[in-house]
Computed example of a mutant assay.
Amino acid sequence: MVHPPRPLKGRGAASNPEGRFETIRHHAEDDGWQHAVLDEDQPRPRTEVTEECARSVITHNDSPDIRFTQALNPYRGCEHGCIYCFARPSHSYLNLSPGLDFETKLRAKTNLAEVLRADLAKPNYIVSPINIGSNTDPYQPIEKRWRITRAALEVLAECHHPCTIVTKNALVERDLDILVPMARERLVQVFVSVNSLDNHLAAKLEPRASAPHRRIKAVRMLADAGVPVGVLVAPIIPALNDRDMEAVLEQAADAGASCAGYTVLRLPHELKALFREWLALHAPQRAAHVMSLVQQMNGGRDYDSNFATRMRGQGVFAELLRRRFELACRRHGFGRARDLRLETSRFIPLRKPSPQGELF
């Protein structure tokens, strides 16, 4: 007999399934000796950070439903542990699990600032706003020690390069000394992700992210400092957190957010099974209802990767979410998340380091 997975305090996933590229599958069997071990005696998985030397750090995107063409991700994996994170399957490329490995076995690109500087110095480089945090959160807890995101911002500020930031961690406030001068030159816009105001639910959905009320406070601090800030109600999970959409937008507007956006839950690759496992552990009575609505928004499947619908869904429930969002935005005077035009003409190309030094 195999015991079902149990919730782990401070972690989103409860298991560590193999990635889709693995050729070996592990199957646990209970031999009866584990019954004497109490749950509280079981060691909790600890966060491990491995340094990684990246050869390139700017990734390019041509997806028609994404508004930026360049992105920067200082870390692989994310300690926030959000069970719904669409980036979890990317850990399979490292021969690691999209489950617990994704939130405990992290990679830090310690040479990111150096490589970024070299990329921006290339003579054929074309300026376009760089999104920081498109895959994993640049202000996840390990950033407090590693400071790689801050190093990247310092390079971008030095050459007056525009960027956008997406985060759900109040640690972004630490870098106001860089963000405020950039904002004066229309070089930066920050988006804070808040998908619920329920602390109890957030502690299970996104266990190591800042609490919802703390993120709203971060919105206020950024706005008061003059940094353009928007709120992302993402992802919206039907029958779980969709009830909070209007309340999130109301509090964000009161805090000074100027624009808003939203996405619905996406379950690519291994994430389907991980999310179903989470529902069985944390919301068993509504699990079937949640997945029924998810499938209604995805053409009868757990996930539909169609660019035209994957961010907003399709069908009656998706249309209801769209109308609710538009009405709330109109009520609070929100613009669209893409309305702000960042300045690209101020860019000053960096020079490659030279052993001869600088003459001029």
Rank of each mutant, 00 (worst) to 15 (best):
E29Y: 15
G315F: 11
L279Y: 02
V49F: 14
E79M: 00
I236E: 01
Y262P: 04
L350M: 12
E51F: 07
A118K: 07
R67G: 15
T149K: 03
V49I: 12
L321M: 02
V231N: 13
P74W: 05
A252I: 03
R330D: 10
G81C: 08
V190M: 07
S305I: 08
A87L: 10
G12L: 09
R88K: 05
L232N: 05
P228E: 02
S345T: 15
E206W: 12
L100H: 03
V294I: 01
A252Y: 04
T167G: 06
Q296R: 07
F191Q: 13
N124I: 04
E185I: 04
Y84M: 12
R220E: 10
S292W: 04
V231I: 13
D31H: 04
Y75V: 12
G313R: 00
I126Q: 15
D175Q: 03
G32P: 09
G12Q: 09
P43I: 00
I178D: 07
H332G: 00
F334T: 04
E246R: 14
H3Y: 10
W33P: 03
L222N: 05
E143N: 02
D254A: 05
P141F: 13
P64A: 05
A239I: 09
C329I: 11
T104R: 14
L232Y: 03
V190Y: 14
I165A: 12
A71D: 13
V172M: 03
S63K: 15
L72G: 09
V172C: 04
Q34W: 11
R341E: 13
H3C: 10
T110Q: 10
G313A: 04
E173I: 06
P64K: 13
I165D: 07
L120F: 08
Q189S: 09
N199R: 12
C159H: 03
R25L: 12
L265C: 08
P17Q: 01
R147N: 05
A183L: 03
L274I: 00
L342W: 09
I165S: 12
R117D: 12
I126A: 15
G333S: 08
S258Q: 12
E206K: 11
I58M: 12
L106E: 11
C78K: 06
D175N: 02
R150H: 10
R276F: 00
